[in-house]
């Protein structure tokens, strides 16, 4: 099964969810102001799950998506401390960039806006380098 997937022929599209676009997983990392930050992206159909962390913890989750009425994407916190809006903000910014539904889980103690900007830039850099993964 696993092997057949890599070499999916054009004719096999009908048996795949979403008519050919499978979930893709992509791990990358970056050293941002002396700190090693890990990223895990899961691309689904018209949506993206992005985890950002220094250790393999998942303790916050937010979702954002564009709306026709407002230039700022709608977002909500799904998991974790609702007063910490870092996952929320990041999800909003990525949603307005990609126009997709974005799930973000930000799990780093450092929530300075300058640091988050570095994180965001690292994500955008990776999006430019591997657009098919996002």
């Amino acid at each position: 099964m696993e092997d057949g997937r890599a070499a999916s022929q054009p004719g096999s599209g009908s048996t795949e969810p979403g008519g050919g676009e499978q979930i893709s997983l992509h791990n990358f990392c970056g050293r941002l102001s002396e700190q090693l930050v890990h990223f895990h992206a899961m691309r689904l159909r018209d949506s993206l799950f992005l985890w950002i962390g220094e250790a393999p913890q998942l303790s916050s989750l937010a979702v954002a998506m564009c709306t026709p009425r407002d230039s700022i994407p709608a977002s909500t916190s799904l998991l974790g401390d609702a007063s910490d809006s870092t996952s929320n903000c990041l999800a909003q910014r990525l949603a307005s960039k990609t126009k997709k539904q974005i799930f973000v889980s930000y799990n780093i103690k450092n929530t300075d806006s300058s640091f988050i900007l570095l994180v965001e830039n690292r994500i955008k850099e990776e999006m430019t380098a591997f657009p098919e993964k996002f």
């Binding site: 979403g18 689904l44 159909r45 949506s47 799930f103």
Partner: peptide, 10 residues
């Protein structure tokens, strides 16, 4: 995290 999808979405 377990994702089970028949629509390709979350």
């Amino acid at each position: 995290l377990v994702v089970v999808t028949q629509y390709g979405k979350m």
